[in-house]
Amino acid sequence: MDRGGLLMWRDALLVAGKDLRIEFRSKIALNQIAPFALVVLLLFAFALDPDRGFLGEATPGLFWITVLLSTLLVVQRSYAVEAADSGRDSLRLTGLDPAGVFLGKAAAVFVVLALLEVGLAAGVRLMYDTSLRGWPVLVVASLAATTGLVAAGTMYGALAAGLRARETLLPLLFLPVVAPVMIGGTRAFAAALDGSSGEGWRWCGLLITFAVAYVALGMLLFEPLLEDS
């Protein structure tokens, strides 16, 4: 790896460490976002409770809708931290590699979301009485879908962060873009839970493609996004 690549990874580690340390201190994800996600799962259960069978069938979609809504909150939190004391200027002034900053912020959001998904998996097992099987597909689909969500969220989060009405703008920008993740994640999970791993792997392919594309886009575009927004 050349020196530029090493510096990028060094910067990514620095930013990810900083963001995770802030999250560990503030416990916003633990005390606010995780309870929010569980409440969403619970509300779905209330809404669909009369038809227990449908609730079981809809588990993959409900799981990913909940993850999607939680992603919005985690990404907004990630940029709120930067805006708190004019940190956005600070992040630019550090002179850190923008691709490294993107990877670092995305990695920190990934860690928070991955932990949240573990909690949500336990939630659907308990609240929806869903038997989790087809673990290899479930794990790969989760990793790929989460990477895609995080990469797109970090990119659009940077774009929205510098604009007025960013809280309402981010969902508007982000949700349509991640429709393929919703579809792929839901279908892959449904296939895994039905025991059709072959179909599940095909959807994993779509999720991996989306994730790779958005990680690459984010690394390329993060500098102008950070500059111009």
Partner: peptide, 30 residues
Amino acid sequence: RRRVGYLGHANGLYLELTAEENVRFWARSA
């Protein structure tokens, strides 16, 4: 930006981090 030090009206600190951690972040970034 890598070569200048700027202090504006705002302090540009991360409020949840300690004083030591803030300075360490800037030290490592440089």
